[in-house]
Computed example of a mutant assay.
Amino acid sequence: MILPMKLLLLTMEFPPQFGGVAEYYGRLVEHWPNREEAIVVLQPADALAKKRFFKWPFIHRALNRAIREKNIDLILVGQILPLGMSAYLYFLLNRLPYAVFLHGLDFSLARRNVWKRFLSKLILRSAAAIICTNNFTAQAVKDAGLGSESKVFVVHPAALLNWEASPGFSAADLPFSRPEKKVLLSIGRLVPRKGFDRVLSALPLVFKQAPDLLYILIGAGPDQFRLEKIRSRLPADCQEKIYFRGAVSTAEKNYWLKNSDIFIMPSREEKVLGIKDFEGFGIVYLEANLAGLPVIGVQSGGVGEAIKSGESGLLLPDDRPKTIARAILDLYHSPEKRALFGRQGRERARNDFNWPGQAVKLKLILEKIFAAHQTIGCK
């Protein structure tokens, strides 16, 4: 019999902070299946904010105090660096097991130079488990020789749409008239790897065969100026069908998810300051599926795990404008396919990517670690 575990999540990101990583941890804690095992969350914010260098001693002090006060059995590390080093040092001194979460870019950053590669190697090889949010990152860890099949696990993010969050938004609230037209929708942070520039480049080809289509882009970010410049170079009749909505309320986001016809985000791998940046998973594809939309993406990073090509949408082999245009027009001209992909995608998102299910999956992984540690401790 496995006794209730006392878990501590050591993380720099957690609600009410925004972002996919913060939501991932927040939802897992919220949906943890055993209330007797409520997860203690430790955010050493003061140490991280005030100390630019030599943060480990201050983080370690906060960790040590929390473990003693809460009688913790297992540490969950939210960020491999710098937090993983504190869990590693505590393990060396006290043999308390820990598991490390990896999302994608964090692993790339941890391999950025010789010193970080050395530290990440120490941390991951001593970890009881490595929990990745996608198979792409899990395979990268195994290829680097930092974790075996029995040690590396995948617990995907899940999708959740709160339709009741901000009711009342309607077309009357839009600053432009929206006649009865079909809508191509994109939602995401405006950075190059999201591929919105490729969508804009494909639209002149699309609009020739889909004159009643609008393109709505929701999101903000450093790439906005470049994207607006690309739009300004398109023919005038194309520009008037493209709307940049910026950062919007939950109510408006939900409005477009409910009232669009196709979702697209052709993410790609990009090198930023010499670091490979990629879409670790793409929870927004599942959100669009939950809203009943067929989705379009490109085979890159973990996108192939979020989109099941031919079932929930289309997974493209490349992000050339012609390839993207063909995919959009394929769905535009086939309402039956749109409806089928939307229906199948919704069922897949509900059944395979829900937070209670992912929390149970993580709990089973951690129970194995805890049981093994108890067995070793009894010898």
Score class of each variant (00 low, 15 high):
Thr137Phe: 07
Phe176His: 03
Leu213Lys: 01
Asn135His: 11
Ser170Phe: 06
Ala165Asn: 02
Pro179Ser: 03
Gln209Trp: 05
Ser148Ile: 07
Arg226Leu: 14
Gly195Trp: 05
Val183Pro: 05
Pro192Tyr: 00
Ala220Glu: 15
Gly188Leu: 05
Glu228Phe: 03
Ser186Trp: 07
Ala171Leu: 05
Pro192Asp: 02
Tyr215Lys: 03
Leu174Met: 15
Ile216Tyr: 07
Ala171Arg: 15
Ala158Trp: 02
Thr137Lys: 05
Leu203His: 03
Arg226Asp: 11
Glu164Cys: 08
Gly195Gln: 02
Glu164Ser: 13
Asn134Lys: 06
Leu161Ser: 07
Leu160Asp: 09
Leu160Asn: 04
Lys229Met: 08
Ile187Phe: 00
Pro211Trp: 10
Tyr215Arg: 09
Ile218Leu: 14
Arg193Lys: 15
Val199Phe: 06
Ser166Cys: 12
Phe196Ile: 12
Pro192Arg: 04
Gly168Tyr: 11
Lys181Gln: 14
Ala138Tyr: 09
Val199His: 03
Gly147Ser: 13
Val155Phe: 09
Asn135Gly: 15
Asp143His: 05
Leu146Tyr: 10
Ser232Asn: 12
Arg233Trp: 05
Val183Gln: 01
Val191His: 06
Lys208Asp: 13
Asp237Trp: 14
Gly221Ala: 04
Lys181Cys: 14
Ser186Ile: 01
Trp163Ala: 10
Gly221His: 02
Val199Trp: 08
Leu185Ser: 02
Val155Ile: 12
Pro211Ser: 08
Ile218Lys: 03
Leu161Phe: 04
Lys208Tyr: 03
Ser186Met: 12
Phe176Arg: 10
Thr137Cys: 06
Asp212Lys: 10
Lys229Tyr: 02
Leu203Phe: 11
Asp197Val: 09
Ala158Lys: 00
Leu161His: 07
Ile187Glu: 02
Pro204His: 01
Ser166Pro: 03
Gly147Pro: 04
Val154Ile: 10
Thr137Asn: 08
Ala171Gly: 06
Ile230Lys: 10
Val199Ile: 15
Lys142Trp: 01
Asp173Phe: 02
Ser148Leu: 11
Phe169Lys: 05
